[in-house]
Design a protein around this nucleic acid. Structure first.
Lengths: 163, 163
DNA sequence: GCAAAATTTGAAACATTATAACATTTACAG
DNA sequence: CTGTAAATGTTATAATGTTTCAAATTTTGC
């Protein structure tokens, strides 16, 4: 998987999207999972930006497409994409974002800028290690970690209300 | 603040509750905040157990009390309690739980057992430190961390569907 | 190829969680 | 007391997510 641009910085976002879609197709093929037109379209919509998108935002975009969809359509597609590690749900925002580490076995950590709304996904092994240690110190078997950090990205620290 | 029992283990829970209420009164007094009857009652309800309680569960309990409350009443009380560090919202569950470190300046980390539903709140300085490091490596100014770990508590690993 | 089975999608209704807006009451300071 | 701010009541509505069952599509075994 190739290196990704920092969402807080201007970049060729079309490249992000097409890379994500290419990766997704490969991953689904490898897993014998069916990346149907609806699912692919939802993934593409989620990848429109590095800002998390709500399920009903996705629904709205689908409707603009002329696609007459109901909520379950979107939630099912999002479930599928989550299951295959292609999108993440940001619990603190009730919203979804494209996974920038698809295919890698990872525990995501999300830096959420309250200024511009962009989200950066990190893999921080040192954090995962300490989390695992803290859990096992309590005899707890960790299965799923939600780690979301709200704050200000570098750009918004300097100049607020960006992008 | 005194040591707390482990929620996964049987303990005298009434002591938890009354300690929490006593602490809350002291904290509010210190902060010149008004722990009104409604707010105190909501806090007590949240502390009924170590399982997170939804806002509408609280609402239901208030109604059983004979108190004719509407959603905003509960959400306002919960906002107040959160603001003063007396309860936490568990984003991954849309539910609320009493803070076991009220008064201490802390970043909570929650171990959520999917077996029994109990939640243990930890303070893990090593985790906080690594999280802070990971964020500042990206130039990100962290303001608020959500860290929720779903899994199985020691008791439920041995014997499922407990409590 | 073809029929049976499984998966995916459509569609309608509903459930849950949360907030907006404005009126009323209560607490408190002077 | 009385004016002001804080807290609560009340109604309505928004936002998010699920259940259920039917129809269509794809896959599989033959």
């Amino acid at each position: 998987m190739s290196a990704r641009a920092i969402p807080y910085r201007p970049h060729n976002h079309d490249a992000c999207v097409s890379q994500a879609l290419t990766d997704a197709r490969a991953i689904c093929q490898r897993q014998n999972a069916r990346l149907t037109p609806i699912r692919e379209r939802v993934l593409e919509l989620i990848w429109q930006s590095h800002k998390p998108l709500g399920a009903y935002d996705v629904l709205g975009e689908l409707s603009s497409d002329g696609h007459n969809a109901a909520p379950p359509t979107v939630y099912r597609a999002l479930d599928f994409l989550q299951q295959h590690g292609l999108v993440h749900r940001i619990a603190s925002l009730n919203a979804f974002i494209g996974c920038t580490h698809a295919g890698e076995n990872h525990t995501g950590m999300f830096l959420i800028c309250r200024g511009c709304g962009n989200v950066l996904e990190l893999t921080a092994p040192a954090v995962s290690k300490e989390v695992g240690k803290a859990a096992s110190d309590e005899g707890f078997r960790a299965e799923n970690t939600t780690l979301e950090i709200a704050g200000l990205c570098p750009r918004c620290q300097a100049e607020p209300d960006h992008d």
